[in-house]
């Protein structure tokens, strides 16, 4: 099994959940006003996508 595949899907999924959270309910954390869910979610989704792309490229 190419570990990049499940890793990729895992972070794509997590990223998607966070992006939706970020888009819908904004952000409510005591010490920050940034939309943490949105940005972190984007980073995770990009990482996941990159893993999947790497796996596809070598197969």
């Amino acid at each position: 099994m190419d570990l990049r595949v499940p890793s990729g899907w895992f972070f794509l999924l997590l990223g998607a959940i966070l992006i939706v959270m970020g888009a819908l309910s904004g952000s409510s954390a005591p010490l920050t006003t940034h939309n943490v869910n949105l940005y972190a979610g984007l980073a995770m989704a990009i990482f996941g996508g990159w893993m999947l792309w790497l796996a596809k490229r070598t197969s």
């Binding site: 997590l14 959940i17 966070l18 959270m21 970020g22 309910s25 952000s27 409510s28 954390a29 005591p30 010490l31 920050t32 943490v36 869910n37 972190a40 979610g41 995770m44």
Partner: peptide, 12 residues
Amino acid sequence: MAQFYPSGMLGV
């Protein structure tokens, strides 16, 4: 984490 992570990222 409680100060900077909203629900969602907190789960992560």
